[in-house]
Structure formats: C-alpha cells, structure tokens
C-alpha cells in the first residue's frame, strides 16, 4: 500500500521536470513505488534520500530489453519500470559507478546521457514514436469529427452535445500540442546551445 499518492501531468517533453520532481520527493523521504497512467505517482515513506531519478526514451524490442537494462545496471542504475514507453531509472547520489576513481566521475555519473548529440537523438525518437501518431490522430480523426459535429450541431440537443464533446477534445488537443511544441523547442535550443 502506498504511503502517498500524487497526481502530476508531465507531457512528452517534460521529462526533466519529472526527474526533478522525483528527486525532490526522495529528498523529502518519499521513494517512488510506481507511476501509472495518466500520471499517478505512488510513494513509500522512507528516510530522506539523496536519490537521482532519470527517465530515458528508447523503446526496445522484446529480445533487446535485457541488454538495454544490463547496460544501465553496469553503470549502477536500477531499472524501475516503463510508462508510456519511457523507462525510469534511479541511483543513490553517493554511490559511484563501480570503477569510479575521481571526483570527475561523480558528476557525469549523475546523468544517463553524456553528450547533447545523444540527447537530441532521444528527442527525435520521441517525436517520431509519440508526436507523429498524435498528429495523425489529430488530423485524421479529431478535425474531421469536429467539422462533422458542426454540421450536426444544428440538429437538436443530441447534435449539440456531440459538438460540445468534440470541441472539448479539440481544445484539449490544441492545448497539449502547443505545450509539447514549446517544450520540445526549448529542449532543442538548450541542447544545441550547449554543443
């Protein structure tokens, strides 16, 4: 049984904010137990922990999954779970990579990516795997349904209800799209400027 449950909505480009949130919760003594759609975080009460949470997006075929997790395990990362094809990892901040020998090792150790080229590659994977289907759904279903509902809207209360429903969906879609667009743009700028 979880000691604490919180709801947070982090969209596709907001994984760094999500990591920060999980790190902060660990510092307050809440260790992530699990996260489920659409964004319910369950925590177990612990002593305050200096824990680093990282989220990767690199969906794997079944036969490659073990190798993917092993790579992170070699570097001291504990694999927690997947949600919405994102993979969650954590590592205590004071535990070094098993062969770490200098202070320098500690800082690169805290991230799962060591250069911005590979961070940009990750964004490309998210855009291709997640944003593209989202856009296709939008253009192929939401827009046509909305336009259809406008014509039916004049046909009594049932038509009006449908129109209201599709208007809500449309507004929600646009809101999510704009937030994702701004988020990805900001990430891209940040990674490119650091190169």
């Amino acid at each position: 049984m979880a000691d604490k449950k919180e709801f947070h909505l982090f969209l596709l480009p907001e994984y760094e904010e999500e990591e920060k949130y999980l790190n902060k919760m660990a510092k307050k003594g809440y260790r992530l137990e699990k996260v489920t759609l659409p964004g319910i975080y369950s925590f177990t009460k612990t002593e305050p922990e200096d824990m680093i949470y990282r989220i990767d997006f690199n969906p794997q075929k079944k036969e490659d999954l073990a190798g993917y997790h092993q790579m992170f395990a070699d570097y001291g990362w504990e694999y927690l779970q997947d949600m919405n094809e994102y993979s969650y990892f954590r590592k205590p901040a004071d535990v070094r990579d098993k062969d770490a020998d200098s202070d320098h090792d500690i800082c690169w150790n805290e991230d799962i990516y060591s250069d911005n080229d590979s961070r940009l590659d990750m964004i490309k994977r998210i855009l291709k795997t997640k944003m593209l289907p989202f856009m296709i759904l939008f253009l192929g279903i939401v827009i046509p349904q909305f336009v259809g509902a406008i014509f039916h809207g004049s046909m009594g209360p049932a038509g009006r209800t449908i129109l209201i429903m599709w208007t809500v969906v449309l507004v929600l879609y646009i809101y999510i799209f704009v937030r994702c667009y701004v988020g990805f743009k900001r990430l891209k700028k940040k990674y490119e400027s650091e190169m």
């Binding site: 990282r54 990767d56 690199n58 993917y68 790579m71 992170f72 070699d74 570097y75 990362w77 062969d99 020998d101 200098s102 320098h104 090792d105 690169w108 150790n109 991230d111 799962i112 990516y113 060591s114 250069d115 590979s118 590659d121 990750m122």
Partner: peptide, 19 residues
C-alpha cells in the same frame, strides 16, 4: 575510453546504448 583519456571523456549508458 576513461582510461585512455584520463577520465576527460566519459560516456553515460544512454549515450552508449543509443550510439
């Protein structure tokens, strides 16, 4: 790589796996 470069170049797991 860490050995060759005296820890100047380090490669994290996400970068390693992706590359």
């Amino acid at each position: 790589v860490k050995e060759m470069t005296g820890s100047a170049v380090t490669i994290s797991p996400g970068t390693m796996y992706g590359t």
